[in-house]
Design a protein around this nucleic acid. Structure first.
Length: 566
RNA sequence: CGGGGAGUAGCGCAGUUCGGCAGCGCACCUGCUUUGGGAGCAGGAGGCCGCGGGUUCAAAUCCCGCCUCCCCGACCA
């Protein structure tokens, strides 16, 4: 590609809205341009990177036995009503992308479980046709509350999504394993460090699932990882072994204290400062509504956050108004069952010491609240987040929290869609209709552009790994306008490399050496080849490895052959 | 959705306090010089000062409304 003819403008100054390095450099280097918040155009360079990543994904999907299809962006709203996800995902997610086309209601697809289930239901009737896994690489739409960091979190983005259909749970697990392995191969080939972590499924539904996390400073997620064994899980799903109870500073008996204007753990800790109360000595009581809209209180130690189980949601102001028995800031677990409130508790609450907690009375807290004497728990589970240093659930060594970006996610969906969508069944060997056992698998393809850029850059610009670089090599003639030798040598190298299939970006612009070098470093192709009068006089051209800055010289006559061999 | 900040040429910004010709750097066009790490000189083009209304002889600037963008926060009692 001749640079003089490419749609490319590099910028010396990054736009003010670009916060992080990957975003700044992708814009400055002429890879992407912003159209609206969280919406980007891929310019020729950016499109090439996207194509490289897509091709890697495509090859690994095909290798795993998945078949490529293309589903529409526009999806009938009716399908989402059938699966029940219009409600569960919430109007705030979809209202922005609902649209009307000739009187029919559509959504711009945020994902394709409904469409693919409907399609496979119609075209797959027999167990003989199973298993089948399909995938597509396509634009997706999400009503992101806050798009951020350029391509990292957008309202429109490109995703690879795959869906597997099996006749049994065992088959589903095999399809899942094939995708899981394919994901490892994709991230390996992209040159990214990644950690598959156990995760919660959230709104998609289903059981077993893993997130593929790439540790990164700009990550918006965290996962917990054992410093000793290979346990890792995202913060929603992470568990810890029981911690050593901290010495209690509570009272033996249940005592009520007047604690005016002290809603919240921190304020109560402050109030009892004289007793050396720590947040871990408090019992945090969070009011939520369960699937049926019934009030539930979840108990966790005061120095931990509550993980609200999927299907439940935390109280809003209006919910407190409807449930006067639960006083915001002063909830305690005592006597809740009698008032029709179910009590769930994290395992860490079972240590059986007296707690400091709310008194169910405005401006009052209690000390000495004791499990089994003062309050009861209806259901135990893992409801508390983990913190650095918590013991690993497998080996009890300390856990650490790692900031990271979610680059991929694989789910075993089970029968979530095949039992809610009409006719999502096949005829089994015994002649009976059975629902499909499904899995779904996503990779943020456009997000990977940002993640790879973030992991591969320096002060001067990008430093692409060769597998995803937009071109293989940057050919930089210096002063070709003044030196026929330079022009001729560069042109010959360009022709010879191009002839053998090397993708060359040829800087044939009439620009100064400084401009060409600066742009080459910014654009960040793995190898730069400089053809200049100085070198040609000695019969050589120079080669620079962008990522390391290493330079060496290559005889001009052998240049093309040597460079093509890389 | 709550709080804060910002919209002036493709990009980065000044000008707004105190109303009076629309500015600077980069980029772009023409010419000459220069030529191995973002060159110099000369000339030139490019603006709905976010949008709408109002005040005024006069509005980028003051007032009202709206839009867009960025940052922080957003169930943790």
């Amino acid at each position: 590609m001749r640079m003089s003819r490419m749609l490319l403008r590099t910028l010396r100054d990054a736009p003010g809205d670009a916060e992080v390095a990957s975003h700044r450099l992708l814009v400055r280097g002429g890879y992407i341009r912003r159209v609206a918040s969280g919406v980007y155009t891929f310019l020729p360079l950016g499109q090439r990177v996207l194509a490289k990543i897509s091709q890697i994904v495509r090859e690994e999907m095909n290798r795993a036995g998945a078949q490529e299809i293309l589903m529409p962006v526009l999806q009938p709203r009716e399908l989402w009503e059938q699966s029940g996800r219009v409600e569960s995902l919430g109007p705030e997610v979809y209202s922005a992308f609902e649209t009307e086309c000739r009187g029919a209601d559509f959504v711009l697809g945020p994902t394709h479980e409904e469409v693919v289930t409907a399609m496979v239901s119609a075209d797959v009737d027999s167990y003989r046709d199973l298993p089948v896994t399909v995938y597509q690489i396509q634009s997706k739409f999400r009503g992101e509350a806050r798009p951020r960091y350029g391509l990292l979190r957008g309202r429109e983005f490109i995703m690879k999504d795959a869906y597997s259909f099996d006749e049994s749970p065992a088959g589903m697990k095999e399809s899942y394993k094939a995708q899981y392995d394919a994901y490892c191969a994709v991230f390996d080939r992209c040159g990214l460090p990644y950690v598959p972590v156990e995760a919660q499924s959230g709104a998609i539904g289903g059981d077993v699932n893993h997130e593929f996390m790439v540790p990164s400073d700009i990550g918006e997620d965290q996962f917990a990882r054992c410093t000793s064994c290979d346990y890792s899980a995202n913060t929603e799903a992470a568990q810890s072994a029981p911690r050593e109870p901290t010495p209690s500073v509570s009272t033996e008996d249940l005592v009520t204290h007047h604690t005016p204007d002290r809603p919240g753990i921190d304020l109560v800790v402050e109030f009892f400062a004289a007793r050396n109360l720590a947040a871990s000595g408090m019992l945090k009581c969070i009011a939520v509504l369960d699937e049926k809209g019934e009030p539930v209180v979840i108990l966790v130690p005061g120095d931990r956050d509550v993980i609200v189980p999927s299907g439940m949601r935390a109280f809003a102001d209006a919910d407190f108004a409807r449930h006067p028995e639960l006083i915001r800031g002063y909830i305690g677990p005592m006597g809740l069952q009698e008032r029709g409130v179910r009590v769930l508790a994290d395992h860490a609450v079972a240590v059986g010491r007296p707690w400091v907690t709310g008194a169910n009375k405005h401006d009052h807290h209690v000390t000495g609240a004791t499990l089994g004497r003062d309050f009861e728990v209806d259901e135990w589970g893992s409801f508390a987040t983990v913190a650095p240093g918590d013991p690993c659930p497998r080996c009890r060594r300390p856990l650490e929290l790692v900031r990271s970006v979610e680059a991929g996610h694989v789910f075993q969906l089970g029968l979530r869609y095949s039992t809610t969508m009409p006719g999502a069944t096949f005829t089994a060997e015994n002649g009976e209709d059975q629902p499909f056992w499904m899995g779904c698998y996503g990779i943020g393809v456009s997000r990977l552009v940002a993640v790879i850029a973030e992991a591969n850059h320096d002060e001067a610009g990008l430093t692409w790994p060769s597998q995803v670089a937009p071109f293989d090599l940057h050919l930089i003639p210096l002063g070709a306008e003044r030196s026929p030798e330079v022009a001729e040598a560069a042109q010959r190298i360009y022709d010879e490399l191009t002839a053998v299939g090397v993708d060359v970006l040829y800087d044939d612009r009439d620009a100064s050496a400084g401009v060409k070098f600066a742009d080459a470093d910014l654009i960040g192709l793995p190898i730069q080849v400089v053809v200049g009068k100085k070198g040609l006089d000695r019969g050589v051209v120079e080669r620079k490895i962008r990522a390391t800055g290493t330079r060496d010289e290559v005889p001009v006559d052998e240049a093309a052959a040597m460079l093509a061999a890389l």
